[in-house]
Amino acid sequence: MTQTRRQFVGNGLAVAAAFFGLPHIASAATLEEAIAAFTSGSDAGADGITLIAPEIAENGNTVPIEVSAPGAAAIMLLAARNPSPDVCTFEFGPAAGSQMVSTRIRLAGEQEVIAIARMADGSFKQARQNVRVTIGGCGG
């Protein structure tokens, strides 16, 4: 396919719009912004939240993560050095039996996984764990 400069620029703008323009995918551009959007700048304590992640992940495509924060209203998961640090945010409803969740996430290389809990009283708790991502031997 041949492409004119104008088309190229146009495509670039379309891509930029796809990233930043649509409200439902308003991924925060930086880790700090993502955290601030959740905590409104409040400090986070370290007690009362447990993050379980493998020290070494065999592949960055599928990394099992478990987080528990008893009494939390919501828990946000972040990957500090992913192209977009947001991973997911759990809001707990009245039928929740605990504030413990497991999921599988993508990690673009070795980095810190961060969990931040917003507690029922409006305070915040944070846990971080570094995960090394194995460089596979064979592309296969």
Partner: peptide, 18 residues
Amino acid sequence: ADHLSQGQVNGFPTYRLK
């Protein structure tokens, strides 16, 4: 950083995380 296996195929088809 990966362990070589014996290359057994008893687990195929196999779900590769990759």
